[in-house]
């Protein structure tokens, strides 16, 4: 489609957005090709205590950790965990939040108010605290981190979609679709959703970054995947005892988190600029 080709072209032209997109692409490649790319794939689960805490050199490019495992290899496999958490958590949040926001925004009145108050309640609870509570109750595991994150994230999408739906619903082409006799479901899915999709895409990209950050924070607190899973947040937590001498230990996962979050934010900001100037209707009068 011509529209998407145009978006792609703009994406390539804007340097910051291109950088963001490249980082995300590298992350995905790293996760898929982790077994091929890692110099020591077996290190993820094996210990080589003789090699512990080696600074970066020609063999271990990012040094080794307290168990003597190659940090680069663990980072690459960690990308899989990061992506899984972010994708499922954000995916669930979108799947729950978007329909709720759409229906609430379309019908307004009391069903809309009710749905919005429920999402307000969720927004009022600090995310990390709720996630800790869930993880504490159900035990630390990747599944529970995902559950905790989805439960706290969906209201962001619900509110966004609610607000966007309310404004698009006043557009004449929506009113005329209703006047034409289209059913509410048809109007919502075929007319409103495509017209607010750019806002959802932008929010999702930025939301991915935020989710990865929170997931890392939970890992840091020991609530994520149990050891020896190569979770980035946990890796930083482990490194605390060896700082500042083993500076590379915390630096590598820290940089990885920083880059990925920045990548998603750059991409989101760029997409906002690219997608937002909506296709303007021709024939405006100014004379």
């Amino acid at each position: 489609m011509a529209v998407w080709r145009q978006v792609l072209w703009k994406l390539l032209r804007d340097r910051a957005t291109f950088l963001g997109a490249s980082i995300i692409l590298s992350l995905i490649l790293a996760a898929i090709l982790a077994p091929v790319l890692s110099p020591f794939p077996e290190d993820v689960f094996e210990f080589h205590t003789a090699n512990r805490l080696r600074p970066p050199d020609g063999v271990n490019y990012f040094g080794t950790d307290r168990m003597g495992s190659d940090i680069l290899s663990r980072l690459l496999f960690g990308a899989r965990i990061t992506i899984t958490i972010a994708l499922i958590a954000v995916g669930t949040a979108v799947a729950v939040g978007v329909p709720i926001g759409l229906v609430a925004g379309y019908y307004g009145a009391w069903p809309g108010d009710l749905l919005m108050r429920v999402s307000d309640i969720f927004l009022a609870i600090p995310q990390v605290v709720l996630a800790i509570a869930i993880a504490q109750t159900l035990g630390p595991s990747i599944e529970n981190v995902i559950l905790a994150l989805s439960a706290t994230y969906w209201p962001f999408w619900a509110r966004l979609v609610y607000a966007e739906t309310r404004s698009v619903k006043n557009e004449i082409f929506i009113e005329s679709a209703i006047a034409l006799g289209a059913s509410p479901a048809r109007v919502m899915i075929l007319h409103i959703l495509p017209n607010i999709s750019s806002a959802i895409i932008v929010r999702t990209s930025i939301g991915m970054g935020a989710t990865i950050l929170t997931a890392a924070a939970l890992g840091f607190l020991g609530l994520g995947a149990p050891p020896p899973a190569p979770e980035w947040g946990r890796m930083i937590a482990e490194s605390r005892d060896f700082l500042p001498e083993a500076w590379w230990y915390a630096t590598a996962p820290g940089l990885a988190i920083f880059l990925v979050v920045m990548g998603f934010n750059l991409l989101g900001d760029g997409l906002r600029d690219i997608l937002d100037p909506r296709i303007r209707r021709a024939g405006g009068r100014n004379d």
Binding site: S176, A177, A179, L180, N195, I279, R281
Partner: peptide, 22 residues
Amino acid sequence: QRAVRKHLQYSYQDPGASLDPR
């Protein structure tokens, strides 16, 4: 009511604005 709309149509001040831009 929606079925009746088949026989009864409404044209906006600018009928062009009733087209979905996408």
